[in-house]
Design a binder for these strands. Structure first.
Length: 308
RNA sequence: GCACAGGUGGCAGAGCGGUCAAUUGCAAGAGACUGUAAAUCUCUCGCCCAUGUGGCUACGCAGGUUCGAAUCCUGCCCUGUGCA
């Protein structure tokens, strides 16, 4: 039986300090004169659904060239913010990147907070081969969730049984699949194709919230509003900003005049906190995650992981 | 001091005799997730037993009217506004 390739995943809620940790670990692995961990070097693949877009820097906390400290990063700035980048596109590019790194004999480190993207990168094949059909979606979106659900029940009862029956977005996509393939989707394949060490970076709740608060202030002072203004000038619509969420949504609303500056910051902050909880809800289900708070625990785990 | 308006669950704010533990929004908590995933969606949210057409305490405080009051009456205490 051929051994699975090793991969390290650094995940966690927003503002946990994942990116820095990933770079620190990669540097250790690439330390000259043979790495501290006995590897050949490591390269990083971002797993962040918003950092894939060009021009979304301050608001996404995208790592800077300097902060990368020479460690190559993949899946950053690969798409225009004017177009929707999807999980499926991420899956393809991330797998490409993993293979490229592995071929070099290096260790891929996936780093990010988008749980769905991490799963897509790690799992064998996540999605049905049905690209989005905007016309069909538009048509379906006009119907009520009840109607969509009964239609799905007829066409793909198995999927209907497990679907979120009040979530139009899910219902539309599920129908889109059966309607174009004529077949039920079948269960999602959750088999991971790598030997992955998953490191979850986390903090006690109150500390994470403080970190979120401090980081938001820094971003606001650091030109976040101008960044969003510039996106607008470059043709990113306000509807698009809205759908990008968090800082882009709220700063966008502020620029539209829908929100006062002084009500924007606290509202946005609460949304970020809520988002961090959603991330944790996702990660909590994965029992293979090793939760750590600092670099030290990570080093021990990686050493053991790489040496066996 | 007089005249109005008002005091409701963590907050805002409905309700104005019964179907009210009380609409709704916010906050809080839990959760879902098969191509938008920072998106989208769901549930809980007075206390208690947690089986239920269950028990208890609640709508400033104290009384009263009524079969029945958050809802009507009286007094008191507070708050806002106007006149002094």
């Amino acid at each position: 039986m051929s051994r699975l390739s090793k991969i390290v995943v650094v995940l966690g809620p927003t503002a946990s300090g994942k990116s820095d940790l990933a770079v620190a670990l990669a540097k250790k692995i690439s330390a000259r004169g043979g790495s501290a961990f006995g590897g050949n070097g490591a390269e990083i693949i971002s797993a962040d659904s918003r950092q894939v877009y060009r021009g979304l820097n301050i608001g996404t906390g995208k790592i800077t060239k300097r902060e990368m400290r020479g460690v190559p990063h993949y899946l950053l700035d690969v798409a225009s913010p004017k177009n929707v980048f999807t999980a499926s596109m991420y899956e393809r590019l991330a797998k490409q990147a993993i293979n490229r790194i592995l071929r070099k004999g290096k260790l891929p480190i996936i780093c990010g907070g988008t749980g769905f993207y991490i799963a897509a990168a790690l799992e064998e094949k996540t999605f049905a081969e049905v690209p989005p059909n905007l016309k069909l979606r538009k048509k379906l979106e006009r119907k009520s969730t009840e109607v969509l659900f009964t239609q799905l029940q007829k066409l793909d009862p198995e999927r209907a049984a497990s679907i979120d029956l009040q979530n139009p977005r899910r219902l539309v996509r599920a129908l889109e699949i059966v309607l174009t393939t004529g077949k039920p989707v079948g269960p999602r394949n959750r088999k991971e194709m790598y030997d992955a060490l998953k490191l979850g970076v986390t903090w006690p709740k109150n500390i994470l919230q403080k970190r979120i608060h401090a980081r938001l202030l820094k971003r606001l002072r650091g030109g976040m509003i101008n960044e969003v203004k510039k996106l607008g000038k470059d043709g990113v619509s306000s509807a698009r900003l809205e759908s990008l969420g968090l800082e882009y949504r709220y700063v966008g609303r502020f620029l539209e005049g829908l929100l006062d500056k002084k009500e924007m910051a606290p509202q946005l902050e609460r949304e970020i906190v809520a988002y961090s909880k959603r991330q944790l809800t996702w990660f909590k289900k994965d029992k293979n995650i090793h939760w750590i708070t600092g670099v030290r625990g990570a080093e021990f785990l990686i050493r053991r992981f790489l040496s066996d």
